[in-house]
């Protein structure tokens, strides 16, 4: 394998992180109509890291952004391209039948093989389903090394050194390309897409594909029984001073 990097970056369109999601009254899901959506924050880190590798003068041949979902995912891909991805693929998946992480991983495997990717940056989790599985599943399916929750990535030829966040600190791993890395918050500070770059992104290539093109069936293994609001906490009100706080804490048996 050549040491030129062909980077694949899967991105997901999710409800914006600053929006407080509302559970639908029929308890079938979360209200998504007319709610602001954006690029999953961890996927921004993935794109940013790929672009920085190129800026570090590494031999980056291609940065391909991929998203699977309804038509509006095209906007998400344009954002990714405005941040620096070279091109993108939009795999059409109906809004009412979203892929589960395993389905996404299978799709990405097919794409990675077809596009001859040798480095894949996956966000550590999507902030909607909070599953945190896709990168590891993809690594399993491809039988590639994985480094999850990366906070630092160094590439020297085909050798990749990744510092990852673990419980209680950090851990450093080394592996060779091809490899999958899932990105954590501390990895970098994603850039804002500048207006000229947003304009340029409109001219970049965005291919439309279907699941059938990659021979993936999007059948769900999980059935939503119900989605509910979490039990509401009752704020206990305010106290006047530190003594009030101590006596209230005692009353509640906390100290």
């Amino acid at each position: 394998m050549s040491s030129k990097l062909r980077i694949l970056v899967p991105v997901k369109r999710v409800i914006d992180y600053a929006v407080k999601p509302r559970v639908k009254s029929d308890r079938t899901g979360v209200e998504t109509a007319n709610v602001k959506h954006s690029l999953n924050p961890f996927d921004e880190l993935s794109i940013e890291e790929a672009v920085r590798l190129r800026e570090r003068k590494l031999a980056v041949d291609d940065i391909l952004a991929v998203s699977a979902g309804p038509a509006k995912c095209a906007d998400t891909l344009r954002t990714a391209m405005a941040m620096g991805a070279d091109r993108s693929i939009h795999v059409d998946v109906p809004e009412d039948k979203p892929l589960e992480p395993l389905g996404v991983a299978k799709l990405l495997k097919a794409i990675a093989e077809k596009e001859q990717s040798n480095l894949i940056f996956v966000g550590k989790q999507a902030i909607d389903d909070d599953a945190g599985q896709t990168g590891q599943m993809l690594a399993g399916l491809l039988n590639w090394p994985q480094a999850t929750q990366a906070s630092k990535v160094e590439i020297d030829g085909e050798e990749v050194t990744v510092t990852k966040e673990v419980d209680g600190g950090v851990e450093t791993l080394k592996a060779r390309l091809p490899m999958i890395i899932t990105t954590d918050l501390r990895l970098n500070e994603p850039r804002y897409a500048s207006l000229p770059n947003i304009m340029k992104a409109k001219k970049k290539k965005l291919e439309k594909k279907t699941l059938a093109d990659y021979g993936v069936d999007g059948k769900a293994r999980l059935k939503t029984v119900k989605v509910e609001e979490p039990p509401a906490r009752q704020g206990g009100g305010k106290v006047e001073d530190v003594d009030g706080m101590i006596s209230k804490l005692k009353e509640l048996g906390a100290i």
């Binding site: 999601p21 979360v30 902030i127 909607d128 599943m137 989605v227 979490p230």
Partner: peptide, 28 residues
């Protein structure tokens, strides 16, 4: 298809987990 961060077990095949940063609770 794995289940992450399970908070409670309803039966051998039905599980409860948080989604959207715990703003919704999914039974699946």
């Amino acid at each position: 298809q794995q289940l992450s961060d399970v908070m409670s077990i309803e039966s051998e095949d039905t599980f409860v987990r948080p989604i959207y940063a715990g703003n919704a609770i999914l039974t699946v």
